[in-house]
């Protein structure tokens, strides 16, 4: 699979990274080089193999249903580029 400028721009848009045309163009050979290389994985017969789910055998622990956190609005908003009236503020969204 190889990518072209349009695909790179589409991916950049999905990833929310603004990219000029020249930047996208420059990225085409770079990505194709890397993608071409990772595609050798296709050679491996994995038909009878499960994808890895836990790196080290371990089970998912579950928490008790107790309120132990929250109530820390100052900490939550401390680093906000723009906070007003206890909210994060963003440019107006049209749904």
């Amino acid at each position: 699979m190889s990518v072209d400028t349009a695909t790179v721009k589409k991916i950049a848009s999905l990833a929310r990274i603004a990219m000029r045309d020249d930047e996208a163009e420059a990225m085409v050979p770079e990505l194709n080089n890397i993608l071409g290389w990772i595609e050798q994985l296709g050679e491996v017969d994995t038909s009878a193999v499960e994808p890895m789910t836990a790196v080290i055998p371990n089970h998912l622990r579950l928490r008790e249903d107790v309120v132990t956190d929250g109530n820390c609005r100052d900490k939550v908003l401390a680093n906000a580029p723009q906070a007003e009236h206890g909210f994060f503020a963003v440019p107006k969204v049209i749904e």
Binding site: Q82, P91, E95
Partner: peptide, 13 residues
């Protein structure tokens, strides 16, 4: 998201 509290901003709760 709240859209009606500010003319140019939305607020996030």
């Amino acid at each position: 998201l709240m859209h009606d509290q500010h003319p140019t901003r939305s607020y996030v709760d």
